[in-house]
Design a binder for these strands. Structure first.
Length: 765
DNA sequence: TTGCATTGTCATCAC
DNA sequence: TGGTGATGACAATGC
């Protein structure tokens, strides 16, 4: 039942979405009125949880598969969200996930469908039956029934709509479309609107739908209420069918495919107005786990686009001179498709990451540097510049993109000036530069991926970093800082709480301090720690003014750090045995009973233990005295074993407490320093990235200049008979000594064929 | 009521 | 070997 409900909900919601987009309202409740709860109840749920707010809140979580089955609302939300995700993937995925939904609806309509029959409609949709269905405006069964499977599909769809009842029920349902239904459709529509889908899209679809309805139709199929069924067919065909004639009503699926596809990707991709422009490019990767990555990547794309635009706007466009007839690649570049200028390569289609990583590549390095374009796209011009393909690899392995000398003088020429090889011509360095630049671009992408974020969203990132770390850059306000007054207050509060619960700690006890446990037990007999008093003191502690009347408590409000524990207030005269002081305080206790409670309340456990054990010196001394003095102090007093153990425990705990505070402060400082370091590194990286872009730009300009010079020189060359050298047969080479050689192309097949049958013209330029 | 931050404490290790 | 600091882990507490 759960699965049935899920699938049922999926199908219904999807169809509702689709129908709402084309303006047709179908009350599917009528199909299911007797077996399942109403659609609006399924969608909206018993509660009004189907709100945009929750929708968005749930967006970043897993889809509803992990939800507890009893969580009906969440299941509905997640199901709805998953549906939207599927719809969103329609422009990327060839996997017709909607097929499943189709037969699911069919299954719901017929209540029981076996697994074998479930797969049948999917096959039908896959084999293009659905397309035929779309192409056939009349929707005749003969046309749709090209194969057995389509028939089953159609029949199933027909069975979904028991038209007699459906008609009437649909009419009724349309008439009394409840407010929830309208709200649902409005919500869906508003989401599309918010995401960029204009209403005209829907209106256009609606018009198309209306015009389609006006067409003569098969009377056996076209009944009054058959529009719903048609819509269903359209919805079915939407998933698996190709776009059809946009001038007729059959293009409706495409029309409402666009807004559906761009339901939530609109912000980063096309707007729904691109009714024809959404290529349903197949995507090999699975869909759902890709969504978040896709969206993140789209964000990166946007930032990269900005960067590429910045580079392009500031640099001359060299593509103009090298544009060839291969308009496909050129257009793809010009259109900002950011492909690697290699045409419809699988990488271009599938690896969107790299695809988007190359905006600056394809822009900064025009196709002149692209070996593939050299060979394919710019063949006519390449007769002059194109190297032998066998040579390019060698050259490519030796050139460096950033090596300017390598650009103008190939390294092997540099190494062996006498053996000037045949064909390492300019295109080779260029193409090599492409590869190098590709690599650079990859690293550039890595930079840009981060820099794009850090630059475009630097402040936001900083905020996020701050918020994520939960730390404030102002370490002086760090709560761990013992010097801050806030810390004192918090420490006071902490100690107060500790004291407040101390009376109950007898149960908790200290396994290591058995004596202390006994002492604490007798502490109750000592008196002054009744829970009632503690409670009273805790409440009265909120008012610091209560300390004003107590001179010995002057430091309480401002010195609650560990280094100066509250007991130090009693240790104004450390020489005095604490028992005396305690006695004196106890004498005052009758007058300042709340104050005493405050003191006890704010005293640490060790302080109270020390008082209980009648330790004759303060905890501060116990903790802070150097070892020698501490030992002397112990020697001066005749202490019992229990007192000695307690003192050592107090000292150990006190030192450890300070150590813990220091440790935490160090941690905090480390984190802050790391944050600052990250910030600095990001800034440096941004600067380096900018410099690199400038270098790339200058290199490109130099290459262009070099190319023009090359052409100019080559066109001026004449042989002994005064005839120009055909560029397809000769090429220029540069020697290390600066001389320029003209070499026949056919001879040069690499460094292996270093046949010096070169026409060494030695035309010194 | 729950989640988070703070603080104290203990155990352990290294010096 | 004991003292001490550092640090992870845990619990208590308050907000």
């Amino acid at each position: 039942m759960l699965y049935l409900k899920k699938y049922f909900t999926e199908g219904l919601i999807q169809f509702t979405i689709l129908l709402s987009l084309i303006g047709v309202r179908v009350d599917v409740d009528t199909y299911l009125s007797n077996q399942l709860p109403p659609l609006r109840e399924i969608i909206l749920g018993p509660s009004s949880a189907y709100t945009q707010t929750q929708f968005h809140n749930l967006r970043n979580t897993l889809d509803g598969y992990g939800i507890h089955p009893k969580s009906v609302d969440l299941d509905q939300f997640f199901t709805t969200r998953r549906l939207l995700n599927q719809v969103r993937q329609l422009d990327r995925l060839s996997v017709p996930s909607t097929e499943l939904n189709t037969w699911l609806v069919h299954r719901d309509a017929e209540t029981v469908v076996s697994t074998s029959t479930q797969s049948s409609p999917s096959i039908t949709l896959d084999n293009g039956g659905g397309l035929e269905d779309v192409n056939n405006p009349d929707g005749t069964p003969a046309m749709r029934g090209g194969s057995g499977a389509p028939e089953s599909t159609d029949s199933s769809l027909g069975a979904v709509a028991p038209e007699g009842n459906q008609e009437q029920g649909s009419r009724d349902a349309n008439d009394d479309l409840s407010k929830e239904d309208i709200d649902l459709i409005d919500i869906l529509w508003r989401q599309d609107i918010d995401l960029g889908a204009g209403r005209e899209v829907f209106n256009y679809s609606n018009r198309q739908k209306e015009s389609e309805e006006e067409k003569p139709s098969n009377p056996s199929e076209k009944k009054d209420g058959n529009e719903d069924q048609e819509s269903w067919r359209n919805g079915v065909n939407l998933q698996g069918a190709q776009p059809v004639d946009g001038e007729t009503g059959e293009s409706i699926p495409e029309q409402f495919a666009a807004p559906v596809v761009t339901t939530e990707n609109v912000s980063n991709e096309e707007v729904p107005s691109t009714s024809q422009g959404l290529p349903l490019a197949p995507q090999l990767a699975p869909a759902e786990p890709q969504l978040d990555l896709e969206q993140q990547w789209q964000d990166i794309m946007a930032i990269m686009e900005l960067q590429a635009m910045e580079v392009n706007s500031s640099s001359p466009h060299s593509n103009s001179s090298s544009d060839s007839g291969s308009s496909g690649t050129t257009e793809s570049n010009d259109a900002g498709n950011f492909g690697p200028s290699t045409g419809p390569t699988p990488v271009n289609q599938d690896v969107s990451l790299h695809q988007a990583s190359l905006p600056s590549c394809s822009q900064d390095f025009p196709e002149v540097f692209n070996p593939q374009l050299d060979l394919a796209s710019i063949a006519p011009r390449a007769t002059m510049l194109r190297p032998s393909s066998s040579n390019s690899s060698n050259i490519n392995s030796t050139f460096g993109a950033t090596n300017l000398t390598g650009i103008f003088v190939p390294p092997h020429i540099n190494s062996s000036s006498t053996n000037i090889t045949s064909t390492p011509l300019l295109p080779d360095p260029f193409s090599n530069l492409l590869e190098e630049s590709m690599l650079d671009e990859i690293s550039l992408l890595d930079l840009a991926m981060e820099e794009g974020f850090s630059q475009a969203q630097a402040s936001q990132l900083e905020d996020e970093l701050d918020s994520d770390s939960g730390l404030s850059l102002d370490s002086s306000h760090s709560p761990a800082s013992p010097s801050s007054s806030e810390t004192s207050c918090s420490s006071a509060a902490s100690s107060s709480s500790t004291s407040a619960t101390f009376s109950e700690e007898g149960a908790v006890g200290y396994s290591t301090d058995s004596e202390v446990a006994a002492v604490e037990a007798e502490e109750g007999a000592v008196g002054g720690f009744q829970p009632g008093y503690s409670k009273l003191c805790r409440m009265s502690y909120q008012d610091p003014s209560q300390f004003h009347g107590l001179p010995q408590l002057g430091g309480i409000g401002h010195n609650h750090t560990y280094n100066l524990p509250l007991s130090s207030a009693f240790a104004e005269h450390p020489e005095l045995p604490l028992a005396d002081g305690k006695k004196s305080v106890r004498d005052k206790h009758s007058k300042f009973q709340p104050a005493q409670d405050l003191l006890d309340k704010h005293a640490s456990r060790d302080e109270r233990r020390a008082r209980s054990m009648k330790i004759p010196f303060s905890n501060e001394k116990i903790i802070n005295l150097p070892v020698e003095e501490f030992n002397e102090l112990l020697a001066k007093h005749h202490l019992s074993e229990g007192q000695m153990a307690l003192i050592r425990d107090i000292r150990r705990r006190g030192k450890n407490k300070m150590a813990a505070q220091n440790c935490r402060k160090r941690k905090l400082d480390t984190i802050i320093n790391l944050e600052q370091g990250v910030h600095d590194l990001r800034r440096d990286k941004a600067r380096l990235l900018k410099e690199k872009m400038e270098f790339i730009r200058s290199i490109r300009q130099m290459k262009q200049k070099m190319q023009s010079l090359y052409q100019e020189v080559f066109t001026q060359l004449r042989d002994e008979e005064g005839r120009p050298y055909p560029p397809s047969e000769y090429s220029l080479q540069y020697s290390a000594d600066g001389s320029v050689l003209i070499m026949p192309r056919g001879v040069t097949t690499g460094e292996q064929h270093r046949k010096p049958e070169k026409k060494q013209k030695d035309k010194k330029k």
